[in-house]
Nucleic acid binder design. Structure first.
Length: 813
RNA sequence: GCGAGAGUGGUGGAAUGGCAGACACGCCAGACUUAGGAUCUGGUGCCCACGCGGCGUGAGGGUUCAAGUCCCUUCUCUCGCACCA
């Protein structure tokens, strides 16, 4: 049998789809809202390496789903674009002097061609690239809205600095103390930065997760990242000083157990309260801590360090005098940067107290201890962080932890010593990068007027041309070296002003790209209200799990801001999220150049065709799990498509199929429909293989049977299916043909094989008409020779009958 | 350390609490051929005194007439977080 001419067929149909604009999406009001779907892929960063077999996995999944939806009468928006600002192009520019735009556009062209070679049904008229002026104009516009709402501010807090990328990083971009991008150890650096107040949206970002159809794991990661915790801020007096020491605690019930206080080394009070005797030691400690990177600070987590300040704090509840220490186990960036230490009920405080010989007082007891008359005047044997009953706690002694918390906070509030408070792990988003290849931040610094936003009419603020892309060396972006660009007029007073030289991080463009697809050519707005209303929100968003917090949290934040200013109509951008699993190398390891296990989609398409590539990637296993690539497995899928092609060469008959085959067809339609709708593509393909194996036995194919099958196959192997459809005499693409319907009655078997079990073990099988009553099944089973053999001489305890399935005879003895 | 998920043939993987291993790869045998990753037919979890008997879903318990599936304990792997008071 000749290999089917996939190369020819695929080229033919791809160019036909393109010239006929088969997959153009139009905002046709004839489709009611519930008949519209927005199906989105996470757009790629077009790297110089080209497409990876991991990319087409998600893209194939959404493509199959979209094709299925169209055939089921949905109007589908399915766009593709490019996340095009980013460091690799800039680094290449530094080395070679090539403009990053040139590099990027070359990469985009390559990516686009590769993506097109897989025959995806994108509406290419809506393609966008985040580095295009026409696109980043609106990224800048959104930034200005954030600025105007007071959600963007300058700060020169110490930031995470990647010495290799020569740029600041958001907390989310630091993994294990290393740069998320290049793996370089992150250090700390103080430079002026732009920061977005994402924390102002913390509660909403948390609450609105509830209604989303997202993987629980991703929601959990976001919840943990936001890290909301409820507690109280309590003020401690400082002995011999007017200063107040404020701490945040979630365990107000342990206030009587405070035996010392700890300030973060960066805490402003450190310098003020340190005694003369301790000053030298404290200063040395603070300096040493400042020199440590975040990684070093967490590396030393096991072994606590610290210095006594010589000062004492006064417990607001019991007046007890406790020493104030400085230690880097307290973080300046969380809560108030100071803690009340309760070593009896906090592991970290326990370790610290043990190391420095500080007192430990038990104030919470387990029920057992409490009722057993335990002696609470002695220090406890171990640290216990569980809830229980308050002890050694004055008027609160005896209360369960929950009550004690509430009552103590009430008392603290009543007496003006503190207040109920909520804290978040989430920090504001470090939004500026000291790089060239990103969106310029559309602000100027004017001596007279301060920070002034550019008028919206002056957008886009274009990146200037330059010869040198190298960082300025001062930690500022290369833009700072271009005086013609930096020196500008203040839009407010007309006086001299300097442009902001920081650029935006790569996340900026991807925060809203799904909105630009709605109306990509609009020059008066990022998208028209009509387009937003027509398509939003995104019904299905498919992409890698690596974006679980970063991109998805940032995009949600921007979307909420846009919602607040009335620019979009939904609180959340992505209704349903699916993470495709990673495709590993055939050695079960992550694909990487250094391991030499990378598979190039171009090679696969050349040797086996795009349809084989598509079907194989879907046949490997469930979309959501990681699975290793096996070219041997691909061969199996390729053979399947060859077999389909061979079927297409059989004569087509007007006859109707045999009842058995008709039944198989209807079962196949049912299973493929259900599994495609639920993205269970692997089992849908398996069912089509079963159908083909049967159909291959026929000398000729009944037309109705074969046409239905070709339509079922078309979302999976669209080129092959189109060709077969044409061979069947149809002049038009099958992309908008109706999806085959199945007859439920025809799916049911009229006879069933019943399993006869004795004590749960299968002893015999027999066939009966479907729907045979339980009573009859029982009688038939009991009469079987094998069953009689195993039940002989034993007492019949009971018989369980499951209609159309089994009879289980339970005997004793 | 904490949190989440996953462990099924030689391999990828199927199984509303009801026949474990669909489909595919690989392998074995045969047919047709004589080499462009061919096609077709049959077989293929393990053990066995091969009697259609026994054992089998990481391990150990439990619930149930019936457990890969539900519950408890435990081990291993993957991912995420990691002094967040």
């Amino acid at each position: 049998m000749a290999k089917y001419p996939f190369a020819e067929i695929e080229k033919k149909w791809q160019s036909r789809w393109e010239s006929e604009k088969t997959f153009r999406a139009v905002e046709d009001p004839a489709f009611p809202k519930e008949r519209r779907r927005y199906v989105l892929d996470m757009f790629p960063y077009p790297s110089g390496d080209g497409l990876h077999v991991g990319h087409p996995e998600g893209y194939t999944a959404t493509d199959i789903y979209c094709r299925y939806l169209r055939m089921n009468g949905y109007n589908v928006l399915h766009p593709m674009g490019f996340d095009a600002f980013g460091l690799p192009a800039e680094n290449h520019a530094i080395k070679t002097g090539t403009h990053p735009a040139a590099t990027t556009h070359a990469c985009i062209d390559r990516f686009r061609a590769q993506i097109k070679s897989l025959g995806f049904s994108y509406d290419w008229d809506r393609e966008i690239a985040t580095c295009d002026e026409d696109y980043y104009r609106w990224t800048q516009w959104i930034f200005l809205q954030l600025f105007k709402k007071g959600l963007a501010y300058e700060s020169d807090m110490p930031i995470n600095w990647c010495p290799s990328c020569k740029t600041g990083l958001a907390n989310e971009e630091v993994k294990d103390g290393e740069c998320d991008r290049c793996g370089t150890k992150v250090t700390r650096k103080r430079i002026r930065q732009w920061v977005l107040k994402i924390t102002a949206y913390a509660d909403r970002l948390l609450e609105d997760l509830e209604g989303l159809d997202w993987p629980e794991a991703v929601k959990l990661m976001q919840r943990n990242w936001i890290g909301r915790s409820e507690g109280a801020e309590v003020e401690f007096g400082v002995e011999g000083s007017a200063e107040k020491l404020e701490v945040f605690t979630t365990r107000a019930d342990t206030l009587y157990g405070v035996t010392y206080m700890v300030l973060a080394p960066e805490h402003p009070l450190v310098g003020k309260i340190t005694s003369a005797a301790q000053r030298a030691a404290v200063e040395a400690y603070v300096e040493a801590a400042a020199r440590k990177s975040d990684l070093e600070r967490t590396d030393l987590a096991k072994d606590k360090s610290g210095v006594f300040t010589g000062a004492y704090a006064l417990n607001p509840l019991n007046g007890l005098r406790v020493p104030i220490w400085v230690s880097d186990y307290v973080l300046i960036s969380y809560g108030t940067g100071a803690i009340m230490a309760v070593p009896a009920h906090d592991d970290r405080d326990w370790d610290f107290a043990k190391k420095f010989g500080l007192p430990i007082v038990q104030v919470v007891a387990s029920r057992k201890q409490y009722e057993g008359g335990h002696d609470f005047s002695k220090p406890p044997a171990e640290c216990d962080i569980e809830d229980g009953y308050s002890v050694n706690s004055g008027e609160f002694t005896g209360m369960p932890t929950e009550d004690a918390k509430k009552r103590i906070i009430e008392k603290v509030e009543r007496e003006g010593l503190g207040r109920r408070a909520v804290n978040y792990k989430l920090r504001d988003w470090l939004f500026s990068r000291q790089r060239y290849w990103g969106e310029p931040i559309p602000l100027v610094h004017c001596d007279k007027c301060g920070i002034v936003p550019l008028p919206e009419s002056e957008l886009p603020l274009r990146l200037p041309e330059t010869k040198s892309y190298a960082p300025s060396g001062t930690g500022e972006s290369p833009l700072a070296n271009i005086p013609e660009w930096v020196n500008a007029k203040c839009p407010k007073c007309g006086g001299p002003a300097k442009r902001e030289t920081n650029t935006m991080p790569q996340w900026a463009g991807s925060c809203w790209y799904f909105l630009r697809y709605l109306d990509p050519k609009n020059s008066g707005a990022f998208a028209s209200d009509e387009a937003v209303k027509y398509w939003m929100p995104v019904d299905l968003y498919v992409g890698g799990a690596e974006h679980a917090v970063l991109h998805l949290l940032y995009a949600r934040f921007w979307h909420k801001v846009l919602y607040d200013i009335g620019a979009v109509n939904t609180k959340e951008p992505f209704l349903r999220l699916v993470n495709q699993g990673m495709i590993l190398g055939d050695d079960n390891q992550k694909m990487s150049k250094s391991r030499g296990n990378v598979v190039n989609p171009d090679d696969i398409i050349r040797d086996f065709g795009a349809d084989s590539m598509r079907v194989y990637e879907m046949f490997m296993g469930p979309l959501q799990v990681s699975k290793p690539w096996a070219t041997a497995g691909l061969v199996g899928v390729s053979r399947f498509l060859e077999k389909v092609w061979a079927l297409g060469e059989k004569p087509v008959a007007a006859s109707s199929p045999s009842p058995e085959l008709a039944k198989l067809l209807h079962k196949t339609i049912k299973k493929v429909s259900k599994d495609t709708a639920s993205l269970d593509f692997n089992t849908a393909i398996s069912q089509m293989m079963i159908f083909c194996n049967e159909a291959a036995r026929l000398p000729e194919l009944p037309r109705s049977l074969w046409e239905s099958f070709v339509l079922l196959l078309s979302p999976y192997a669209p080129h092959l299916a189109e060709e077969l459809w044409e061979k069947l005499g149809h002049g038009k693409s099958l992309a908008r043909e109706s999806w085959p319907a199945y007859d439920e009655a025809l799916c049911a078997d009229e006879s069933k094989e019943i399993v006869a079990q004795v004590n749960g073990k299968i002893r015999e099988r027999f066939t009966v008409p479907a729907g045979t009553p339980e009573k009859e099944l029982e009688a038939m089973a009991l009469a079987l020779p094998k069953v009689r053999e195993w039940t002989e001489g034993k007492e019949l305890a009971k018989v369980i009958v499951v209609k159309d399935k089994l009879v289980n005879v339970v005997v004793k003895g």
